[in-house]
Structures are given as structure tokens and as C-alpha cells.
Design a protein around this nucleic acid. Structure first.
Length: 801
RNA sequence: GCGGGCGUGGCGGAAUUGGCAGACGCGCUAGACUUAGGAUCUAGUGUCACCGAUGUGCAGGUUCAAGUCCUGUCGCCCGCACCA
């Protein structure tokens, strides 16, 4: 009989659906397992072969867990707010809801054709008012607790998207999405105080089962540093506050720098002889985009303040103050003490402006280059710090500063608060109104969701306002607090909002009284295994951990962290090894593979393609190889015999394979699990027969990877029930090892022969067997044996002279 | 520059963590079956001159034994990028 994958796959997908085998049960007494993949953005391009890789991986885990008796939650939904949909809507003048619905329908069909065991009864969509009602509600909780605030600020504005970007969305000074130029604009924006959680977002990583590169990337992004804030007296009478991680080098501070936007420039206006020049410099700096600023990073520019100087608190020396754009207003205090001897940037600047370079840590030649090593070297030219190690000096000077009341130990972060508003249509409306009398007032809960009103045009306005800003009858409303006239906020939320809590909604997706019931959350959370892309580590992953911690603080969830385990898959590249892209024309559509080779082949191939965590190039021949394997599996039927016990020919291999596949799935080594199944199949073909018990074992192991063909063959041989709701298979450790082993015999570390010994042979037996070997004799005779090494069950090494 | 990762056949990749390097798949070679095969099956396939030697980017080192550990060096990929 021919292996008609198309018919078989349709048949089983329907059977699984009809039997509801993949639906998580609301029985909270069962052991649970929550497997999660990042929900997709339903783009107009349809599914990409990159999608099935993580989906199949956790599908395998989920299927195995179900067979092990767990109540498994493996859900999927749609992260559907976003720019591409909005842009498509603008271009074609179609309502974004319609576009979204169409794209979701296509994605759903495509994903369903892969036989993934998602619980479709829990499907969610971030653009569904019943969903975003709760996104808005959570935002209001932030607002009510002072963690959402409005702030006039310089923002990154993408000229071509006409949208404000979060810092995380600016890559190399350009818009992450469209690559367009990013300029600075002053706008009033909603902000979320993620910085308040910075310490916990780092500290709580400890103890989580996240792959190391995810942890380090988050830690680096948050960028915690320890140092001190120090007040410098100035000739103007004002104190100039700086932040430094090297208070130990205070004696080496020979000048100071403030950022062009520093508030003292205005304050000191009348004392500054060159105020106009400084303002012109600031204007120049503001004009530079982030991109240009980065490009020009090497070449330092600046202007010396004429009229105000600072006083170094440790030695009373007057030092000049400069304005330079290498100091950022947004980090620390916007001002630094410059120690050219021990900081590369300060060194560059000092060389250019011919400023003194004073060595305070011995160990380098500071006239040649800044000496920044903190591990070695002792303090010099530093008064009471002389002779101390850097670490000791840090401690001593911080204590001294604190005592004198001119400084204090301080921790700083690179992480900034999250710019939470967008001037766009296709996002969650911010559920706040502005009342002249009461200020910003939240909508009462019963008015949620605040629905997106239909607008004439989805185009953002040229002045950077949301399309909603033109809807005067929607904007004008009454204040929920005083009943007076008020205006609605026209900004919407960024597309990261809906994804910051979606994993909670899956626990209880149809609840209309709260985000999800406490019982459901307590049972399902935290997520046991979350897999997603590395590109989301500093965005979605960090944001959602932040939201979850906040919800934990207000008592809605019971764990401080949402995810127990986080892994990341590698990208699938084009045949040549380049990234798949429309412009290169090397994009693989999963539909074609399903049509030409079947879903099982595609699933198998994306798992076999290579190390799950690394990127791997697509190979059409590789796909064919997987199809060939399945054809050979199908062919097993022709050599099937009766029998309910493993035969001696295959018994050990089967136990070994069960062990290997079971362990490899847990370790994400899907490629070698499949290789083990291929090896076993080759062995079966060698012995040319397989009985029912053996085939059942094989199909059970294959079923998480290639579920359709496994079910079909299981049914053909009269297996009980469906594999999808069947039992995983156990192995007997004792039966995975042979009674005899062939081990290598080395002479002086070089392989010279192999001998067969009992698996549990002791040293004497092994050595004697080896010595009796003819080949070995040739190498030993006439030599003195210096040493004999035996690794039980592994090898023998005889050292001769 | 800083942080993370990686260099193994013609290719994708294995190697119980120090113990027979190259599992498994692709590709290739030869043969079989075929009118034919880009189908299938069988055998072979790291390199070099057949015993044998040699081989995991390169150079050293530790060890009975190194792809794996140490030192140095070269190259590649990813992330961040004037964060004081």
C-alpha cells in the first residue's frame, strides 16, 4: 500500500480534533505542564519555515509530556496589533480588523496543516476587545500605582513610520522595522517605570533555568554599575553632581564635562562669556541623529565654559568645565569628572584639548594610553589613598566622601523607562482622559474595553499625532471624576503591550471578570518551558518579566517570575546560508513542503536540520532524506511478524533507543534523537524482520516527531487507542548494555587492536585478554611494560618502553 | 572597544564531557533492477603512496590518553556601542 501522506495527515488531524485530545483539562489535581512558544504576528506573507522549528520542538515535548501523564497546556494565539497590518490598511484602504482576520485565518490553516498539538480552544488574539480590555486594565493598575506617568522627553522618532520608537527599537541609529532615519523630537509620552524593577530583573535571573546567553544579554542590557555620586563645588556657587564608577581616581580628575543639554547651561547663562557659542554647539549636537553620533564617536568635540570652573574636593584645585556631546544627558547625572589617565574617552578628549593627564593608578604609561586595568596596580599621587589597591581605594574614598557629605555610593543602570505611547491607530487605546480640573483620570473598569473607533484614515498625521487625534467626537468626553468636559488620550500602546501578559490569559482565556482566575493562574503558572527567538531577549522577554513582577506585587499572580525555563532556537537560513528574504527570493513556503513531502517530513526535517539552538541552512536534499526515512518506516509493514516480546536481535537496540530519544528530547537534542531512530530503522532493515511489540515501540518513539504516519501505522497493526493519548514507553537500563563489549587496545596511547571482553570484566581479565591478542603481542614482546590502564567497559592502554 | 558564541570530511552535523574522531543525513563512486531514471536496492566513501602513517583553524603545553583541559595566536558569527 502506498504511503499517501496527504490523506493520512488530514485523517488524523480530524480525529485528534474530534477527540479533543490536545485540549488542556481544567482538573487542577493533575500534574501539569505548561509549554509555550512565542505567538506569531500574523503577517500578510503567511507562515515562514522559521515558524515550524520552535513550534515542532515544543510540540514534541508536549506530546511526550501528555504520554507521560501530564495535563499539558500548549496554546497558541495571535500577536496581531502592529505596523505592517496598519500600513497595509492605509495602502489598500481596508479596515485593519479585516486584514487581521484574513491573515489569522491563513496562518491558522497553515499551522493546523502541520499537525501541531496546540489547544485551539484557548486561542487568543491581542486585537480582540475582550482581550485588550485586560491589557488596558493592567495599564490602569500601573497608572494607579504611579508606575505609568507622562513625561516631556526627547524621543526617537522614525521619519518614515511617523512613529515614536522605544530605545530598544532603535538599532544602530535607525528604525529597527523600516531602517529609516531616526531623529530626536520632544514629545509628551506615557512611560512605564521598568527601571524601578531593574535590580530584581537582574537578581531574580539567578535560579531560573534560562540558557546562559539569554541571562547575560539581559544583564548587560540592564547594565547595572556600582559607583558614587560626587558633588563638585564650582566658582558659581552651585554644586555640580557627577556619577562615577571610579571614585578611586578622584585625585586624577583634571577637568569636568557636562552634556550639551545640561540644565546648568541655562542657569549659568549670565556668568558664561561664551554662552552663545555653547548654545550653537548644543543645536549642532541635537541635529545629529543617533546614527551620526555613533559614526563620529571617535572624534571628540567640545567647548570650554568661559566663566565657571569647578573645584576638585580632594585637593581644592580649580579645574575647567567643558560641554561635550560625549557625555549623555540621559545617563547618570549628565555630568562627569574626567580622569584622562584612566579612561579612554577622557584620554582622547584630553589629548585633543591639551589637558593634563595625571597618573593615579600605577601600572601603565598614561602619557601613551589610558590605563584602565582595575585588577592590578596601586594608587599613587592620591594623598591618603596612596599604596592601596583599586578596590580598597574605592571603598576608602567612598567612605571619606560620605563622611564629608560630598558624595554617596550609587548604583546606576543603562536601562531606561519604557516609552509606552505610540502615535498610531492599530494598537490598544490608552484608557485615560484628561480633565482640566482633575488631570489624567482613568476610565472606570466598567467602561473597559475602550474600543478603537472606526476612523476615516489610518494615516498618522504629519505632526506625529495618532490618527485618532482627528476624531473630535470620540476625543471629547466627560471626566469620570468630576463630570466636566475632558479629552481622551489619542496615543495607543506599543505592540509589546499585548504580549507582556498573554501567557496568563491562556490559563483562563474566556474569563470576563478578570485577567484569569486565581485558581487557573496558581495551577498553570509558571510556564514550565518557554522557547522563543534571541531577538526578543531585551524586548518582549524583559517587558513580560517586568509586567509579571508587577502583577505579583499587586497580588494577582503567585510567582515572581513567569517562566521557569527559557530556550532559544536558531534561524533557518536559505540554501546558500544567507538569511531568507523576499528580496533574495529564497523564501521557503511551508505549504509547498507539506504538499510535496507531507507535514511529517517537514516536521522531521526542521528538527533534524542541525543543532536546535544554532542557525542552519535549508536543504531540499535534506528534506528528501527525511521523506526517504518515512518511506522506509512505512515499508516496515512488509516485514512485520507477530509477537508481544522484543526479540533478542532487537531488544538491546530498542532499549537503547528509548533511552536516547527520551533523554535527547529533554535536552533539546532533537537532531540526534532522530538520528537514533534512523539507526534503529537501519538495524531493523538489516535483520529484515520486526514483530508487533517492536514496531509499537518504534512508533511510540517516532510519534512526537512524525505523529500522522505513526498513528496510521499504529492503527494498521491494531494498536490500542490513539498514540496521541497513549503512553510513553519505558526502558530497562540493564537491557541497554550488552553482555560483551568490543574495546580498543592502545599501546602507548595509539590504537593497535580491539578485543572482546565481558562488559563487567575486571582489570586483570581485560589486560590479560588484550595481551593475548596476536597484534598486541607484536607490540609488547621485547619491551618492558611500564603501566597498564583500564577504563571499565571502555578501553585498555598499555604503556611500554 | 565591550559582552556572548563558534572554528571537526565535499556539505548539515555527531562524539556518554578526558577514553576507538567523523554517529545520522546529504552528496559522491561503483554495481543491480530498469526502455529510462533526478525512483528503489546493494557496496564503498576523512586525507595520503597498498602494510602503515596522518588527521578536529594555527603554535605550544598538561596527560598513559586531548576535538574536549591550559597558554598564546589567527579567523568567523551574534548582541551592545561615548553608559563615565
Amino acid at each position: 500500500m502506498r504511503y499517501d501522506y496527504t490523506a493520512i495527515e488530514k485523517k488524523w488531524q480530524k480525529k485528534w480534533e474530534d477527540a479533543h485530545v490536545f485540549e488542556a483539562k481544567n482538573d487542577y489535581t493533575l500534574p501539569k505542564y505548561y509549554a509555550l512558544v512565542e505567538f506569531p504576528y500574523p503577517s500578510g506573507q503567511g507562515l515562514h519555515v522559521g515558524h515550524p522549528r520552535p513550534y515542532t520542538a515544543l510540540d514534541i515535548v508536549s506530546r511526550k509530556r501528555r504520554m507521560e501523564g501530564y495535563n499539558v497546556l500548549y496554546p497558541l494565539g495571535w500577536d496581531a496589533f502592529g505596523l505592517p497590518t496598519e500600513n497595509y490598511a492605509i495602502k489598500n484602504n481596508i479596515r485593519p480588523e479585516i486584514v487581521t482576520e484574513k491573515n489569522v485565518a491563513r496562518f491558522r490553516d497553515q499551522i493546523k496543516s502541520l499537525g501541531l498539538s496546540f489547544d485551539w480552544s484557548r486561542e487568543i488574539n491581542t486585537t480582540d476587545p475582550n482581550y485588550y480590555k485586560w491589557t488596558q486594565w493592567i495599564f490602569l493598575q500601573f497608572f494607579k500605582r504611579g508606575l505609568a506617568y507622562k513625561k516631556e522627553m526627547t524621543v526617537n522618532f522614525c521619519k518614515s513610520c511617523k512613529i515614536v520608537l522605544a530605545n530598544e527599537e532603535v538599532v544602530g541609529g535607525r528604525c529597527e522595522r523600516c531602517g529609516g532615519e531616526v531623529e530626536h523630537k520632544v514629545k509628551s509620552q506615557w512611560m512605564l517605570k521598568i527601571t524601578e524593577y531593574a535590580d530584581r530583573l537582574i537578581d531574580d535571573l539567578e535560579g531560573l533555568d534560562f540558557i546562559e546567553r539569554v541571562k547575560t544579554q539581559e544583564i548587560n542590557w540592564i547594565g547595572r554599575s556600582h559607583g558614587a555620586e560626587v558633588d563638585f563645588d564650582t566658582t558659581s556657587g552651585d554644586k555640580l553632581k557627577v556619577y562615577t564608577t571610579r571614585p578611586d581616581t578622584l585625585f586624577g580628575a583634571t577637568y569636568m564635562v557636562i552634556s550639551p543639554e545640561h540644565q546648568y547651561i541655562e542657569k549659568w547663562k549670565d556668568s558664561l562669556g561664551n554662552y552663545d557659542e555653547i548654545i550653537a554647539y548644543r543645536a549642532e549636537a541635537a541635529k545629529k541623529s543617533d546614527f551620526e553620533r555613533t559614526e563620529l564617536a571617535k572624534d571628540k568635540t567640545g567647548i570650554k565654559l568661559d566663566g565657571v570652573r569647578a573645584i576638585n574636593p580632594v585637593n581644592g584645585k580649580e579645574i575647567p568645565i567643558f560641554v561635550s556631546d560625549y557625555v549623555l544627558v540621559s545617563y547618570g547625572t549628565g555630568a562627569i569628572m574626567a580622569v584622562p589617565a584612566h579612561d579612554e574617552r577622557d584620554w582622547d578628549f584630553a589629548k585633543k584639548f591639551d589637558l593634563p593627564i595625571i597618573e593615579v593608578v600605577a601600572g601603565g604609561n598614561v602619557q601613551e594610553a589610558a590605563f584602565t586595568d582595575v585588577a592590578t596596580g596601586k594608587m599613587v599621587n592620591s594623598g591618603f589613598l596612596d599604596g592601596l589597591e583599586v578596590a580598597e581605594a574605592k571603598k576608602a574614598i567612598t567612605e571619606w566622601l560620605t563622611e564629608k557629605g560630598i558624595g554617596v555610593a550609587k548604583t546606576n543602570f543603562k536601562l531606561r523607562d519604557w516609552v509606552f505611547s505610540r502615535q498610531r491607530y492599530w494598537g490598544e487605546p490608552v484608557p485615560l482622559v484628561y480633565c482640566e480640573k482633575c488631570g489624567w483620570v482613568p476610565l472606570p473598569d466598567e467602561e473597559l474595553p475602550l474600543r478603537l473607533p472606526p476612523v476615516e484614515s489610518y494615516k498618522p498625521t504629519d505632526n506625529g499625532e495618532s490618527p485618532l487625534a482627528t476624531m473630535t467626537d470620540w476625543i471629547n468626553t466627560t471626566c469620570p471624576h468630576c463630570g466636566g468636559p475632558a479629552k481622551r488620550e489619542t496615543d495607543t500602546m506599543p505592540n509589546w503591550a499585548g504580549s507582556s501578559w498573554y501567557f496568563l490569559r491562556y490559563c483562563d482565556p474566556h474569563n470576563d471578570t478578570c485577567i484569569a482566575s486565581k485558581e487557573a493562574l496558581d495551577y498553570w503558572m509558571p510556564v514550565d518551558w518557554y522557547n522563543g527567538g534571541m531577538e526578543h531577549v531585551t524586548l518582549h522577554l524583559l517587558y513580560s518579566r517586568f509586567w509579571h513582577k508587577f502583577l505579583y506585587d499587586i497580588g494577582l499572580v503567585s510567582t515572581p517570575e513567569p517562566y521557569n525555563k527559557r530556550t532559544a532556537h536558531g534561524m533557518i537560513l536559505g540554501e546558500g546560508g544567507e538569511k531568507m528574504s523576499k528580496s533574495r527570493g529564497n523564501v521557503i513556503n511551508p505549504d509547498d513542503i507539506v504538499r510535496d513531502f507531507g507535514a511529517d517530513t517537514l516536521r522531521l526535517y526542521v528538527m533534524f536540520i542541525g543543532d536546535f539552538e544554532k542557525s542552519a541552512p535549508w536543504s531540499e536534499n535534506g528534506v528528501k532524506g527525511c521523506k526517504r526515512f518515512l518511506d522506509r518506516v512505512w515499508g516496515l509493514e512488509s516485514m512485520l511478524t507477530d509477537g508481544d516480546e522484543y526479540t533478542s536481535k532487537l531488544e538491546m537496540s530498542i532499549h537503547k533507543t528509548i533511552k536516547k530519544v527520551s533523554e535527547d528530547i529533554e535536552a533539546m537534542k532533537f537532531n540526534t534523537a532522530i538520528a537514533a531512530l534512523m539507526s534503529l530503522l537501519n538495524e531493523i532493515y538489516d535483520v529484515k524482520s520486526i514483530n508487533k511489540a517492536e514496531l509499537k515501540a518504534f512508533l511510540t518513539l517516532l510519534s512526537p516527531f512524525a505523529p500522522h504516519i505513526s498513528e496510521e501505522m499504529w492503527e494498521m497493526i491494531g494498536g490500542e487507542g490513539m498514540l496521541a493519548s497513549g503512553k510513553w514507553i519505558e526502558y530497562d537500563e540493564a537491557k541497554t548494555v550488552a553482555s560483551t563489549v568490543e574495546i580498543p587496545v592502545q599501546i602507548n596511547g595509539k590504537l593497535r587492536a580491539t578485543v572482546v571482553i565481558p562488559a563487567d570484566a575486571d582489570k586483570d581479565t581485560a589486560i590479560n585478554t588484550a595481551k593475548a591478542d596476536e597484534k598486541v603481542k607484536g607490540y609488547i614482546d621485547g619491551h618492558t611494560i611500564v603501566k597498564e590502564i583500564f577504563v571499565p567497559g571502555r578501553m585498555v592502554n598499555i604503556v611500554v618502553k
